[in-house]
Amino acid sequence: MIIKILGSGCPNCKKLEINARDAVKQLGIGADFVKVTDFKEIANYGIMRTPGLVFDEKVVSFGKVTDTATIVELLKTYINDRRV
């Protein structure tokens, strides 16, 4: 899967990326990380507050630095939904 971090490079975006990488490591899944810094692209996802977190084009959180435990839950739900 592809995990995108949306944000212009502010400290919060970096923190979110660290949390997301930790979550992926905890679950032992494979994921590619993409940083989206272009405003046009960020706007296309419909978010008005950065940073945003996107799993395969689906916005799962925005406007806050989601913590690792929450991202783990989000990932579990997302992977389960995909299987169904």
Binding site: G7, S8, C10, N12, F39, I42, A43, G46, I47, M48, R49, T50, G63
Partner: peptide, 15 residues
């Protein structure tokens, strides 16, 4: 409304 200068552009576009 909570405001951060780093979000002003996405906000402008979104509005």
């Amino acid at each position: 409304t909570p405001f951060c200068s780093c979000s002003s552009i996405p906000l402008f576009i979104g509005f």
